[in-house]
Design a protein around this nucleic acid. Structure first.
Length: 553
RNA sequence: GGCCCCAUCGUCUAGCGGUUAGGACACUGGCCUCUCACGCCGGUAACUGGGGUUCAAGUCCCCAUGGGGUCACCA
């Protein structure tokens, strides 16, 4: 098949460049979205009914080296109805890596008509806060990553805060102990810390198994530990990484439940995934070390583990862990900067996942095309420039009215009043800066000059162009423009063209002074559209004001 | 250090044993043009190294190197 494709490429005329194809694809994406709101509802349909569906890659494992020998088998990619979950801990902002994890889960749930559950892993009492919980909800809602079961919406498997599920954990920990896969440990944290401290530097502590074989049950505070098997191995066929096997000797008797009865991550996650009927777990690949422990818990409890997918990390531009130092890392920051949610999702989706040569995806296309087989295994680096490109592409794909509505919250109070007072002029203004902005906040900044009584001025531009030599041109331009009716783009252009032809003047000599006169800047949308949006009165007033400046300079 | 994962342009990636190693962002030359964008045409740029397997290896295997993850009564 690849050979055939290569031949087609070879034989096809050089005329259509790939860039051209991509641009066409970008345009088609948005045209489709505009034309058909129903695209939102296509998610449940068979691929054959979906545009481009026949080009969807075949599912299945992509690396031969890992195929075969697994207990778990890769489910066919068309499998319906996975129950997936996103399980953040409310200890701060919602990290962009977490957003991507949530996104992949959400996409998969939507694609397979499955269920996306949100669970709050708040068992770290020290660090969990209600404020962080709210941040998670707000961020997810802003991105449109709505959950089917979880806090606020409820569901049959609640509660969805782990701290409210202690009864469930108590039941399951008893069961695990009864089945001989866990035991009570009476060693205190202080004792263990002392042993840890006594270790020579550079070596690593391992629980010595002190309580592993004791048969008494003193009435003392205790934790519960996993009785990890001493031999054999534990493994699974990861949906993105392929076969992973870990020798059991490398496992420790990790603590499952604290002395206060609150579970630790591994136990809480496993029990909740069991009781919530989760069939596919996708999470960051920093969790692959935890997976064998959870598998052992599943096994010890007698349950079949879910399908597992571990996503590579997102690194900063320097290849190190992405931090505030590199870029905005929380979803909230992106919202505040005026990033379009769909564009954020698009960029994040493409960071670690691909679909042929396509770069720009609408939300519904993401749902339609996402698959685990196309998730990459390599860590990705955050690239602000590419992000900006994706942002711009989505912005340009919006129609003027929609963009104007989205941008409204980012206007200054003064601007917002002006915009509300004349909605159609506001929308027209937005239309003139659409190809120039990448964020909603930028849209606000860029249309500022239309609405202020006197535009804020770029000093250098003024000094360069509003000079005595410009005065005659501006004076003449004023006369030309004054009587044009209607005061719109084409008539204005025609009138000015005629004037230029008559006088032999060059547009480029007239344009910059006029631009600075009307916008205060040396860079702006096209002059004629600026004049149209400004309207006759303001245009003339600004030319007059500039004339004075020219003389005064 | 133990265990685990990863390795194609600067970056995101395509590649499923036979390719002039493709695309995108960025960078860059040009076109369009009243500026800046948008758009259009072009260019620079990659298979970490070494062994195997094979008629043939970016693709399969092994080793090395380099990166990353993790070793808590955090998640």
């Amino acid at each position: 098949m690849p050979i055939v494709q290569r031949w087609i490429r070879r034989l096809s005329p050089k005329g259509t460049s790939s860039t051209k194809r991509t641009r066409a694809l970008v345009r088609a994406t948005f045209a489709l979205r505009r034309a058909s709101r129903s695209a939102w509802f296509m998610r449940g349909r068979p691929r054959s009914m979906v545009p481009g569906g026949s080009r969807v890659k075949r599912g299945g494992p992509r690396r031969r080296r890992h195929v075969g020998g697994g207990v778990l088998s890769l489910a066919p990619m068309t499998n319906k109805g996975d129950r997936v979950r996103f399980a953040p801990s409310p200890t701060g902002y919602l990290h962009i890596g977490g957003v991507r994890t949530a996104l992949y889960n959400w996409l998969w749930a939507r694609k397979t008509s499955g269920v996306f559950v949100l669970r709050i892993e708040d068992t770290d009492r020290e660090r969990s806060t209600d404020a962080s919980v709210k941040v998670i909800f707000d961020s997810l809602k802003w991105l449109g990553l709505t959950w089917d079961e979880g806090p606020e919406v409820g569901g049959p498997n609640g509660p969805y805060f782990q701290t409210e599920r202690t009864a469930v954990y108590a039941e399951f920990v008893d069961k695990l102990i009864a089945r001989g896969h866990a035991y009570r440990c009476y060693c205190t944290k202080e004792e263990l810390d002392a042993k840890r401290a006594a270790l020579p530097p550079g070596s690593f502590f391992r629980y010595p198994g002190t309580c592993r074989h004791r048969t008494d049950h003193p009435d003392r505070p205790h934790v519960v530990r996993l009785k990890a098997p001493a031999s054999g191995h534990t493994g699974w066929l990861d949906l993105v990484k392929g076969r992973i096997d870990v020798p059991n000797e490398s496992q420790q008797d990790v603590v499952l439940v604290r002395a206060d009865g609150i579970p630790l991550y591994n136990f809480g996650a496993a029990v909740d995934d069991i009781t919530m009927g989760i069939t596919l777990v996708a999470r960051g690949d920093d969790h692959v070390v935890n997976t064998p422990v959870q598998l052992l818990i599943y096994e010890g409890l007698g349950y079949t583990p879910p399908k597992l997918a571990h996503l590579p990390m997102i690194n900063g531009p320097d290849g190190k862990k992405l931090s505030k130092r590199h870029a905005a890392v929380s979803a909230g920051e992106y919202r505040d900067m005026g990033y379009l949610p769909d564009a954020v999702l698009n960029y994040l989706a493409r960071l670690g996942w691909s679909h042929g040569d396509q770069e720009i995806f609408s939300r519904s296309e993401l749902i339609e095309k996402f698959d685990w087989a196309s998730v990459g295994r390599t860590p990705a680096q955050y690239d602000a420039k590419k992000f900006a490109f994706v942002l711009g592409a989505h912005l340009r794909g919006l129609d003027d009215a929609a963009l104007a509505a989205d941008a409204r919250p980012f206007l200054s109070a003064e601007l917002r009043d002006a915009a509300d007072a004349d909605g159609s002029r506001y929308v027209a203004a937005v239309g003139t800066v659409k190809t120039r902005a990448t964020t909603l906040a930028e849209v606000g900044d860029m249309i500022d000059f239309y609405f202020r009584d006197t535009p804020s001025e770029d000093e250098k531009a003024v000094a360069k162009f509003l000079v005595p030599a410009s005065a005659p041109h501006l004076q003449a331009l004023r006369q030309v423009v004054e009587g044009v009716t209607p005061f719109t783009r084409q008539p204005l252009e025609a009138a000015i063209d005629a004037w230029l032809a008559e006088t032999g003047l060059q547009m480029k000599n007239v344009a910059q002074p006029a631009r600075v006169a009307m916008t205060g800047r040396s860079q702006s949308p096209g002059l004629f559209e600026v004049m149209e949006v400004l309207g006759r009165e303001r245009t003339l007033a600004r030319l007059d004001a500039a004339l004075t400046r020219c003389g005064a300079t």
